[in-house]
Write a protein that binds this DNA or RNA. Structure first.
Lengths: 195, 195
DNA sequence: CATTATAGTGACCAAGTGGTCACCTGTCAA
DNA sequence: TTGACAGGTGACCACTTGGTCACTATAATG
């Protein structure tokens, strides 16, 4: 069974994601865990300590899943394979509950916390672009894509995809539409850059 | 001289943008206006009423500046002119104080208020893309750009630009870098799609 | 068995919140 | 002159917030 310390963090992530740091309050958090408020203080010194522990866990989760070269997707053997790979990653990122919460927390708190600010740039901009930069470089080496600057290519690919993912987060009822637009964009992108 | 009613909204926009709806409080707002808290209630019924009035003003400002066909930029006569037009618009949007505040408010509150949610999609996604869609269509008609779906072209252009504008908002100390990357992207985009 | 550490409780506190109220003051019209 | 009114004030209220404290129960350990 999960330790109380971890249960607190899981529930706190939900509350911080929904209401922001200021909007989350310890009474509700304790109630959702069927604990008294003062019990929280047996595990963490303050609301801020919980906040930092939540961020630590978020960063550890990211590093474990996307942070190392071991997690790089295999270089596709065709452009259609690239399309499928991209669509799988997009679908995963808008469906995984933990990622959904993480994204929402980062978006709403990026201006109020320096650490979250850095995470926003990493998660939404440079991290994802870095992954696709390597994918595209590999595909160029295989002669599947026209020669180009892989970094620029990755940026011009991931930024539109990212904006549609944000649309899903913001307006879940338009998710199907957003995913369709994502697929259309990916196919358009491939049609332009395929060798 | 500006009426107190309007001064309240201007200052409230600043505080909502900095601290969010929940984080902004009426005592500070009144103090910054050299007013007593209860004076605010002579002009607005509640904090929520101030909030809605701020959103009204934001929407009116947007409609006045970007909402009608009269505000469409003239179709460029060359690709270099498109580059210059884009860079001017980017520079304006990361420099104008009112737009900076508006952007920040929309980003941080997009999940907490339905109206702000719609504004986010409009301002960051569909509004800007709509403008460039018409610009690109005009340039295609002039034979300056290769024939393509202007909507898809506009989306694949504005989304990366928008992500760099968000980077400026989040990390102002990296603004110069972000603007340089924006120029590089715009020139890359033009080099691909010029006829 | 006694002791000690851990996890939990509920009452309480101080500070901050949005909002109300009685009151004041100048302006302007009847 | 007088009365209505718009704009402004400070004291006050109820409620919420993060945090503390004395206390309890249980399990492990010398």
């Amino acid at each position: 069974m999960e330790s109380t310390r971890e249960r607190i963090l899981d529930e706190a992530l939900i509350m911080f994601a929904e209401n922001g740091y200021r909007g989350a309050n310890l009474r509700d958090l304790a109630a959702r865990l069927s604990l008294s408020k003062s019990a929280l203080y047996k595990h963490y010194d303050s609301k801020e300590a919980i906040w930092h522990a939540v961020l630590d866990k978020m960063e550890a989760h990211y590093a474990r899943n996307f942070g190392s070269v071991d997690n790089l997707p295999p270089t596709p053997d065709s452009c259609e394979e690239l399309v499928q790979l991209s669509l799988r990653m997009i679908h995963f990122t808008v469906s995984d509950p933990h990622i959904i919460l993480t994204r929402r927390l980062i978006i709403t708190e990026q201006f109020h916390d320096e650490r979250v600010c850095r995470m926003a740039t990493k998660y939404f901009l440079e991290g994802t672009a870095g992954i696709y930069e390597k994918v595209f470089a590999g595909m160029m080496a295989k002669g599947l894509l026209k020669p180009a600057d892989p970094a620029m290519l990755a940026f011009s690919f991931t930024a539109p995809v990212s904006s549609l993912i944000h649309l899903c987060a913001r307006e879940p009822e338009r998710q199907a539409e957003a995913l369709a637009r994502a697929e259309a964009f990916v196919r358009y992108f491939v049609s332009i850059h395929a060798a």
